[in-house]
Amino acid sequence: MPDTSQLLLFIAAGWLLNLTPGPDVLCIVSHSLRNGARAGVVAGLGVTAGCFVHIFAAALGVGALIAASATAFTVLKWVGAAYLFYVGAKLLLSRGGGSPLGAAVATGAVPQAPADLWRVFRDGFFTNALNPKVALFFLAFVPQFIAPGTTHTTWVFLALGVLFNVNAIPVNVGWALVAAWTARRATAVQRSLAVLDRVAGALFIAFGLKLALSSRP
């Protein structure tokens, strides 16, 4: 496992990255705006469940790749770095108008009758589980916190992935609560999201550069 300082950096980076607007956040916020905070929280739990699919798949895959092929690791490294650069550049160049809260409000999402919570959970699950970019993200992000020479790489990757996902739960709950409370204050929240986009974009690019310059663990 990483040392204490690296583990704290991993947790902090995970929280900031989970605050970044994306399809999962849009799902949580939309349900929260339509049907209240409870529906948003359930959607967030669905997202968390869907994310475990990618964590287990990526843990098994990345362990095998690192153990068997330096070439495969190099290819994966450059694909992952390119993806992180792409996401970072997209966030830095965004104008903030495409934030999930703004998008949900623009669709006319307003509190209505209580939702079918099982359907809401399924929406969150499939929003994440069917997004191949989530798997690519884990393959690009988590290995940077696995020290060179680590034994049992697959188990360390799995532990870090689970930690990342569990740490995302309070963030997802926070999105749901904030969206429900600020349904009529979307303009002010959207300005804050524009700043967050820039910070997260710079962080994505920094991690992409770190990945591109890294050597095989």
Rank of each mutant, 00 (worst) to 15 (best):
M1W: 07
D3M: 09
T4F: 15
S5Y: 10
S5F: 12
L9A: 13
I11T: 06
L17G: 11
N18T: 11
L19F: 13
L19C: 12
T20C: 10
P21N: 08
D24G: 13
D24H: 01
V25I: 14
L26S: 07
L26P: 00
C27S: 10
I28A: 03
H31L: 04
S32K: 08
R34K: 13
G36W: 06
R38G: 10
A39N: 05
V41P: 11
G44Q: 09
L45Y: 03
G46F: 01
V47A: 13
A49S: 14
C51Q: 07
H54V: 05
F56W: 08
A57K: 01
A57Q: 08
L60A: 15
L65R: 02
S69Q: 09
T71E: 14
A72Q: 08
A72C: 13
F73C: 09
V75L: 15
V75C: 14
V75K: 11
K77I: 05
K77D: 00
G80C: 04
G80H: 03
A81P: 08
A82C: 14
Y83E: 08
F85R: 10
F85L: 14
F85M: 14
Y86E: 07
V87C: 14
A89S: 14
L92P: 10
L93V: 13
L93M: 15
G96D: 01
S99N: 13
A104T: 05
V105Y: 14
A109T: 09
V110A: 15
W118I: 11
V120P: 08
V120N: 06
D123Y: 08
F125I: 09
F126T: 08
F126H: 06
K133N: 11
A135D: 04
L136I: 11
F137S: 04
F137V: 00
A140L: 01
V142W: 00
I146S: 04
P148Q: 01
P148N: 03
T150V: 07
T150Y: 07
T151F: 10
H152I: 00
H152Q: 11
T154Q: 13
L158E: 06
A159T: 10
A159G: 11
G161E: 03
G161T: 02
V162R: 04
N165G: 00
V166T: 01
V166Y: 01
V166G: 05
A168T: 07
N172Q: 12
V173D: 00
G174W: 02
G174M: 08
L177E: 09
L177Q: 05
V178T: 12
A183P: 01
R184N: 15
T187Y: 10
A200I: 04
L203Y: 11
F204S: 02
F204E: 05
F204W: 12
G208C: 08
L209N: 01
K210W: 15
S214T: 05
S215Y: 11
S215R: 14
R216L: 13
P217T: 01
